[in-house]
Design a protein around this nucleic acid. Structure first.
Lengths: 267, 267
DNA sequence: CGACAATATTCCGTATTTCGGAACATTTAA
DNA sequence: TTAAATGTTCCGAAATACGGAATATTGTCG
């Protein structure tokens, strides 16, 4: 009666709101009614009714129970299965990450450049009790992350300038590099060494080591990284992990190569 | 070069087209490019570009590989996992069906009334080599299916008339009941006996026995049925399966009851 | 049975969104 | 460097979503 917890369903476009609705429904282990969803989401009833109707017509939901309730539809469940069965790419990447975490004992992640930010594609946490909790899907500015520096280091200086000009170098910690000249120097160093470090530049106490996942044609758009509390892994010890990181990167390279579609089926 | 196989992506509403696109992408085990999708679906390039962009912004897809290719996004994969993990309802139903098929040796399905048609919610095939292949998600008119007669038998005659008036009794086989008076008599018999039979009324050679999944409050909207080739299972032998069907129906009743949300979690 | 309450469904004018041809930008190949 | 292929942006016309209010359908209680 008193619970007015509203699970916001947002989305820039009406289209995307439907996915939010599906998520709400998929999380439940029970049938849902129109009225129940109205109370849960706060959306107007006719709007929800239309959405449910669309999803039902598409087979993503189905009426169930007494006919006025909804559950996930066959088509949606099939899509879910197809996706999880067929996506060896992400499965393989995840396996590589997990192995790397086993080896180094710290949280690791795979990242990609998306716009001017670094996006966490996947992540496996360390089993150690003390850890930074950063979840996949989140974003970090390029200039203060190890992976981001790698991506910047691959670009021509004009590309880099264009990217950074529109997003000023925000200062996250005392050590964040906010001076463009200093950043250029740092990037030059990264290019020479072939690896990048984040020395508490994004979060105090968090250090990070990253290398690019190599790519045949030229620039790469993904990187692997280890992240650890500096208390447990000071910089010198962090650098000892380079060979293991490199091996993981090669494994990822092979996976991505195959997923790029050079190995067609017939002929 | 010569392959002009176009995977149609339809949908009454723009929203639904996105699901079609996701299905195309989820089925692949490789990254897809904009151009590749243009060739595969036949949709105009700007349209596809916008759709991909929306899905990417929503996290349902992610750019991958060299950054101009797409693969399934984290949010979509999480949705898939949530759905498959959390949906004990459909899993339990499927298990009941499978057990029933083991017992009776013939294909079985769970159906629901949707409009004036019977919708196959789930189905498990017999291992026998000779079988009718009817896939879940397909629809059959109510008047010539065992399940449909059960649903009709629960209605008041005015409800039934309204439903049938707008969809004339189509004749599928020699035995299809197309005379309204005969149908009323048949339905009266179904109500008395508590089960319904389809004696080659939809497909020649196919017989079917169905019972309702009971429901506490009154009318039920789902049924269980056995379907078999009449050659292997003549009517008399088919009726011997009634007790087993009934037991499956009770099991399903319990599952649906729990899913209806009477057993809330806290307090 | 009839009246009331709760829920589901339809209507419909207004406000957004989608659509996709054409122009433009970027990357890859030669 | 040029040419070819692919990706991206523009923008007016057409289609769609929106949601308050009215209506229809249950379900419940006297």
């Amino acid at each position: 009666m008193s619970t007015s917890e509203v699970t916001r369903i947002d989305g820039d476009t009406p289209t995307l709101r439907l996915f939010g609705l599906l998520e709400v429904i998929a999380q439940k282990d029970q049938f849902v009614s129109l009225q129940g969803l109205v109370e849960e989401t706060g959306l107007p009833k006719p709007t929800l009714h239309r959405m449910l109707q669309q999803l039902e017509n598409a087979g993503m939901l189905q009426r169930d129970g007494d006919g006025r309730q909804y559950s996930t539809g066959l088509r949606l469940r099939q899509l879910a299965e197809t996706l999880l069965l067929n996506n060896t790419v992400h499965g393989a990447r995840h396996a590589v990450l997990r192995r790397l975490v086993d080896e180094v004992g710290e949280s690791c992640n795979i990242t990609a450049l998306s716009g001017a930010e670094v996006l966490y594609l996947d992540r496996v946490e360390t089993p150690a009790p003390l850890r930074f909790y950063l979840h996949p899907g989140s974003r970090v500015p390029a200039h203060c992350s190890a992976s981001g520096k790698l991506f910047l280091a691959q670009m021509s200086s004009s590309q880099r300038r264009r990217l950074l000009e529109h997003s000023p170098l925000e200062k996250y910690t005392e050590k964040t590099i906010v001076d463009p000249v200093a950043l250029e120097a740092e990037i030059e160093r990264v290019r020479r060494d072939g690896y990048a470090v984040d020395n508490e530049e994004f979060l105090p106490g968090l250090v990070c080591l990253a290398v690019l996942v190599p790519r045949a044609g030229g620039r790469s758009n993904s990187a692997v990284a280890v992240q650890a509390p500096v208390i447990r892994l000071p910089l010198e010890k962090l650098l000892d992990l380079l060979p293991k990181l490199g091996r993981a990167a090669s494994a990822l390279e092979r996976i991505e190569f195959e997923a790029t579609g050079d190995g067609r089926d017939s002929a």
